[in-house]
Computed example of a mutant assay.
Amino acid sequence: MLFGKNFSDHMFLMNYDENKGWHDPRIIPYQTLSLAPSTMVFHYGQELFEGLKAYRTKNGEIQLFRPEKNIERMNNTSRRLCIPEIDPSDALQAIKEIVKTDSDWVPHEADHSLYIRPFIIATDPFIGVKPSSTYLFMIILSPVGSYYPEGINPVKIYVENEYVRAVKGGIGASKAGANYAASLKGQDKAKHLGYTQVLWLDGVERKYIDEVGTMNVFFVIDGVVKTPALEGSILPGVTRDSCIHILKSWGYKVEETRVALQEIIDASRNGKLNEAFGTGTAAVISPIGTLNNGGEEIIINNAEIGPIAKKLYDTITGIQYGEIKDEFGWTLTV
């Protein structure tokens, strides 16, 4: 099952207009949309999306993993983009109902899941820069296989020094398509150089680490786990937050701070860079084996997955699939 290639039988829709607010929630067969060429989303990019998954446990139940965090982030993005917020209970009910409707699409195979994509677009047929007065909220579903069909192998990362993805005060902390459009050039550049992902630096000084591709990033330096602080230019990832909670529960020292690229280089040279990994919904944990900074390659943990990354992956996926007791109250049965 290729990620994002196949979609389930149904989709959820709900409309917004200034007089009625959010109204007419409905589940209909998956189908194409009919929109005027002047629809504002095409011209001014006023839209957002989220991503989470439904998992089938060994006893056949279907559960979600921290859906309230995705809904909270969705409404935070809405505020930034002048999109009307959706009542969190309504959004959660919509997610649960569409998953129930297409529950047969939740895979039974190990390490497979049903990807859930809620999104909102501006729908005014109008050419002019202003917030739309009408919107469409939709949810579509896509079954996905294991992100690591051949095992969790560390990826090679290219440090991007030419292009920037976001700056503080912009929309870097929002789950908006514009953030991903801004990242395409760097991602394409890395791909042509033979690297899997991009390590983005801050957009002002090009000195501090922001994100890895579409993931948050963690570094283990001399036993201390460090991750860039949420200062407005990076996405507050649900997996990132989960890792921080779990690591602290294990007794690790976790620092949410500004992480300078030079600090990583120095730690590597001094033999103190223990491991590095990215976190996100798709891969959960993506270990980093190589960093290329201006042609200089830094090999991390002999290009092998580190013990912390492996334990985090096993723990989070164990909770998601109901194989490990959920000590945090993060799962919700559909």
Score class of each variant (00 low, 15 high):
Arg80Thr: 11
Asn270Pro: 00
Leu81Glu: 01
Ala91Thr: 00
Glu323Asp: 15
Ala229Leu: 13
Ile316Ser: 01
Pro37Ala: 03
Gly329Trp: 09
Ser8Ala: 15
Asn19Phe: 14
Leu273Pro: 05
Glu275Asn: 06
Tyr55Leu: 07
Leu261Asp: 04
Arg66Thr: 08
Lys69Ser: 14
Thr333Phe: 09
Ala110Gln: 14
Asp9Asn: 14
Asp104Ala: 13
Ser183Asp: 04
Lys226Gly: 02
Ala176Cys: 14
Ile265Thr: 12
Tyr148Gly: 12
Asn216Met: 02
Leu235Tyr: 04
Leu201Val: 10
Leu273Thr: 06
Gly271Tyr: 11
Leu193Met: 13
Phe328Val: 03
Phe7Ser: 04
Leu141Cys: 08
Lys311His: 13
Tyr252Asp: 02
Thr315Gly: 02
Asp266Ser: 11
Ile300Met: 08
Lys248Trp: 01
Glu109Pro: 07
Val224Trp: 05
Pro307Trp: 12
Asn153Lys: 15
Ala182Ile: 08
Ile140Pro: 04
Lys100Gln: 14
Ile244Tyr: 04
Glu61Ala: 15
Leu33Pro: 00
Gly251Glu: 06
Asp266Asn: 12
Cys82Glu: 10
Tyr135Gln: 07
Thr32Asp: 15
Lys175Arg: 10
Leu52Phe: 08
His10Tyr: 08
Met1Thr: 13
Lys248Gln: 15
Asn216Ile: 03
Ile308Asp: 02
Thr101Pro: 03
